[in-house]
Simulated scan of single mutants.
Amino acid sequence: MERVLITGGAGFIGRFVADELMRRGHQVRVLDSLIEQVHGQIDRPAMLHEDVELIRADVRDGAAVARALEGIDSVVHLAAEVGVGQSMYEVERYTSVNDVGTAVLFEKLIQRPVRRVVTASSMSIYGEGLYRDQDGALVETAERTTLRDGQRNWEPVDAQGRPLAPVATPEWKRPNLASIYALNKYVQERTTHILAAPYGIEGVCLRLFNVYGPGQALSNPYTGVLAIFAARLLNGQQPMIFEDGEQRRDFVHVTDVARAFADALELPGAAGGTFNIGSGTDRSVTEVARALARAMGKNQIEPEIVGKARIGDIRHCFCDTGRAREAIGFEARQDFEAGLAELAEWVAEQTAEDRVHSARAELEARGLVA
């Protein structure tokens, strides 16, 4: 048994990680600022286990971080501003919380080392995922031509203009940082690996793909895509999908992600590693929107295909889970349809303020929708 600090632990993923760690016999302390965009105006999230000690403070507050680390054996670092689109205009806020907050945490860890730190990274650091060209060669550096309104071909092509075929993305694929959020997550990842080992700390990073499940912030228009779709459907509105809706993603249930964090914290084989955490199954965004509508009993509501792209978005990226399977035995267990049914059941008991159109207007006003 260890005493574990989870930064950002009052958030969607953090609450499930806390539950999983406590189920395994660990004691959990959470440091979280409870920002209004995610949590609304509350003092403590209802889904945060009553036995979790909560310290309400900003991860950039060095004195608070030092207090939070007292008596702690290991750290799960989740504290971050999350959202590709918003990161492209709230640049200082995202960089400060994500990069400076991580720097503050590690400065305090230098003074008070722990056994292991597991940091949440993101699939966004890849930019476009891995592709294969028509000659069979793998392509790590796929890019799209300049995006424009109503274009018909959203797919990356090779130098000869031939379409590329997306394949599962492994950890060795080089980063292609297409948004400030992606840059932030890569800085968090590299900070963990650069600073952990010299001070006798074991550093681990988990690159999360699209996490979904009950408890996500439905009124936050920059949260996970399934939560955004669920909020729209709950209010009788069409899920809004950029481009043509055929972009492919990997959706992984939050309970699988929580188990991955707990295993990455405990198992010797994780030390020093960086691992993809996803389901290993790719789905189109339109397919997912329709499946969620069915699960919520809203079959009659078809998604709205916008035909425009957000600057910083990528076309295809889905998960190669081989390294995580070999090092920590990770495999996603949650069936997707069953996970959607669980999400739909939870959403039916919620209220959500639909802020999607205001978020889109904000992006368009800043020239971030092509």
Rank of each mutant, 00 (worst) to 15 (best):
R132F: 08
I72S: 10
L130V: 10
M123L: 14
A79T: 11
I125V: 15
Q111F: 03
Y126A: 05
A103I: 06
G129L: 03
V117H: 07
G127I: 09
V97I: 13
R116M: 08
V75L: 03
L109T: 12
V104R: 02
R132D: 12
V91G: 12
A68L: 02
V104D: 02
V104W: 03
G101T: 11
T95G: 15
L78Y: 01
G83P: 11
A120L: 04
R132P: 13
L105F: 02
Y89W: 15
G62A: 05
A79V: 09
A80P: 06
V91Q: 06
V91R: 12
G85M: 11
K108N: 07
G129H: 03
R60N: 10
G71L: 06
V117P: 09
T95P: 08
G71M: 10
G101P: 06
S87R: 12
R115L: 13
F106C: 01
R67Q: 14
E81H: 14
Q86L: 13
A68F: 00
T119M: 01
V75T: 02
V97K: 10
A120N: 04
S74C: 13
G83M: 09
V76S: 03
E92T: 15
A64G: 04
E128P: 03
L69S: 01
R67H: 06
G85A: 08
A80K: 04
R60Q: 06
L130P: 08
G101Y: 02
Y131S: 11
E107A: 06
Y131M: 11
Q111L: 14
E92M: 14
A66S: 03
F106L: 08
A63R: 05
V118P: 01
A66W: 01
V82W: 05
D61R: 00
F106N: 06
R93T: 14
V82T: 10
A63S: 08
M123K: 09
Q86I: 15
S96N: 11
V65M: 03
R67K: 10
D61T: 00
Y126G: 02
E70R: 04
V75P: 00
G101K: 11
I72L: 10
G83E: 09
V117W: 10
A64R: 07
D73T: 15
A79S: 13
G127H: 10
D73R: 15
L109D: 09
M88L: 12
A103R: 06
Q86T: 13
V117S: 13
A64I: 06
R115K: 15
R132S: 12
V84A: 12
Q111T: 06
S96D: 12
P113S: 10
G71K: 07
V117K: 12
G101R: 08
D61L: 00
E81Y: 10
G85W: 08
T119V: 02
M123R: 11
R115W: 07
M123W: 08
G101W: 11
P113G: 10
G129Y: 01
M88E: 14
E90D: 14
A80Q: 05
R132N: 11
I110S: 09
Q111P: 02
V97G: 14
V91I: 15
R60M: 07
A64E: 09
I110Q: 12
I72N: 12
S124C: 08
E70A: 10
E92P: 09
V100T: 15
S121C: 02
L78W: 00
D99Q: 15
E107N: 05
G71R: 05
A66E: 04
A63M: 05
G127N: 09
G62F: 00
R93N: 14
F106Y: 05
A80E: 09
